[in-house]
Amino acid sequence: METAAAIQPTTKLWNGGKSPFNVSYGKLMMWYFLMSDAFTFGAFLISYGTIRFSQNVWADPNHVFNAFPLTGHTNLPLAFVSLMTFILILSSVTMVLAVHEGHNMNRKGVEKWLVFTILGGLAFLGCQAWEWTHLITGDHAVLVNGTLQHWGTTVSHNPWGPEVNYNGAEVASPGPIAFGGYFFGITGFHGFHVFSGVVINGIMLVKTRLGHFDQRGHYEMIEKAGLYWHFVDLVWVFVFLCFYLI
């Protein structure tokens, strides 16, 4: 009898009438969408890893990403991308605080934290725009077939190959062409997620202001938008690892 009593609560979960996972349909589907999106990003990053493993040389991130706005040519490896990471983590915190205020049915609180989250997202996108512009319009001496050329980092040009001797000076040679495509492709796809996250949070802010969630009796939509926003932060953690740290 004792075992029957112990089993009963778990079997009851699947008897129908309520969600066996104890979540609403929308939230469960958001989780499954995010899982599929994780596979998409994972496939991109693993493809990048495969190509990188197949090469004898690769661009050194400490040389490629060493610029900071308004500091000219000062060598500041990893500084700017650290700021971007900090912005995204902070906006993740403001989002989870918005979700928390939603639990308490505090409309003003949700509005306040959503505004901060949106500002964080926009700041991140601004940083990425600056970084891309800096890379694409950059001017690096590269020795191509015995003559010096000046290249930026694009999907077709990689001026970050191994250094070679040219008239007594060390000059870079062209690096693996895949670098630019993978960098702009994956950070671009992530940036698109940030952009759509900002749009979704904007819609949530408008709906909160209009009192839609108060009428509905719960702020679960904020939770779903929050899941998406945290996922964007989660992906950045891995992009940060794969492109900037290792």
Partner: peptide, 20 residues
């Protein structure tokens, strides 16, 4: 480790039931 904390605390997955 960072991924674990984001998913478990920020996304509240740690608070969901085991099956999910």
């Amino acid at each position: 480790a960072k991924a674990f904390y984001i998913v478990s605390i920020f996304m509240h997955l740690g608070d969901e039931i085991r099956n999910l």
